[in-house]
């Protein structure tokens, strides 16, 4: 049975698209067939992060409206055979995503993919609501910062009230916390919320912590999901998170600041 995973956060700029790209790639690297869908109608970006922007012909809204078949719209990832991308429309408005239309496309995708990763837009409007409506699992991407934590909490409320599972009284969506842009140094100095505080505030299990890293910008510049950069801390953190999602026991990394030299100990950074 295939699974629908929504990558959501409420707040913008916290790393949803980066996470969607790396998570879907990670699932594919582990041998599962995966598709990643951009729900940000009007502000398409997943194609850039996945490095397939020049191969977009048809999009999600074309498929919903019957102007193209799924086969025509799906773009095969150039690095991983078992990964596909369904880009968002750049020209329509978000009202083009109807509940029935989205449901039909997802049902068709379920036939050929193990995992369907839905990259949610920011906010709590139609695109975001549609991205989470059919979800079985949710990755709640949160930065260690007050507005992000509050928005994540808000999204958790919506997952528990407005999703299909909630409406039908089915088993609730499984929620996972993914803390991104984490800086252990700043946490250590008392300038940043620690991961344990965030977990306690939001009350959902922790899937992973992705440290702030230059590699993320470099990956987006190049159009290669950061999980492919296995030398970088963020690439490794995403690989760990995927492994945990698949049920492996992997200890948390990148929670402690790097060891400082003698002079830094005296004078600070």
């Amino acid at each position: 049975m295939s699974k629908i995973i929504v990558v959501t956060s409420g707040k913008g700029g916290v790393g949803k698209t980066t996470t969607s790209a790396s998570f879907a790639s990670g699932l594919a690297m582990r041998g599962h067939s995966a598709v990643v869908i951009d729900f940000d109608v009007g502000l398409r970006n997943l194609d850039l992060i996945m490095g397939c922007e020049r191969r977009v012909v048809y999009d999600f809204v074309n498929v919903i409206n019957g102007e193209a078949t799924l086969r025509q719209a799906l773009i095969k990832d150039k690095r991983l055979d078992n990964l596909s991308i369904l880009p968002a429309s750049q020209t329509r408005d978000k009202e083009a995503l109807s509940k029935e239309g989205v449901g039909k496309v997802l049902d068709e995708l379920r036939e050929s993919f193990d995992y369907i990763v839905c990259d949610s837009p920011a906010g709590i409007e139609r695109g975001a609501l549609m991205a989470l409506y059919y979800a079985d699992e949710a990755l709640v991407v949160t930065n260690p910062e007050v507005s992000s934590v509050r928005d994540s909490d808000r999204i958790l409320g919506i997952l528990g009230a407005k999703s299909k599972r909630a409406e039908e009284g089915a088993e609730p969506i499984r929620e996972h916390l993914l803390v991104t842009r984490y800086s252990p140094q700043r946490v250590d100095q008392g300038e940043m919320l620690g991961v344990e505080d965030i977990r306690e505030l939001l009350g959902i299990p922790l899937l992973g912590v992705v440290p702030e890293s230059e590699a993320v910008l470099q990956a987006s510049n190049a159009g290669v999901p950061v999980i492919h950069d296995s030398d970088s801390s963020s690439g490794q953190a995403y690989a760990d998170a995927v492994a945990r999602f698949l049920g492996e026991e992997v200890p948390m990394r990148f929670l402690e600041p790097e060891k400082k030299g003698f002079l830094k100990r005296i004078f600070g950074t």
């Binding site: 910062e145 007050v146 934590v149 509050r150 909490d153 946490v187 100095q189 008392g190 300038e191 940043m192 919320l193 620690g194 505080d197 505030l201």
Partner: peptide, 15 residues
């Protein structure tokens, strides 16, 4: 006072 603990306290109240 450390700003992170202020942040946590404010969030606890508003949430």
């Amino acid at each position: 006072r450390k700003s992170a603990s202020v942040a946590k306290e404010r969030l606890q109240i508003i949430l």
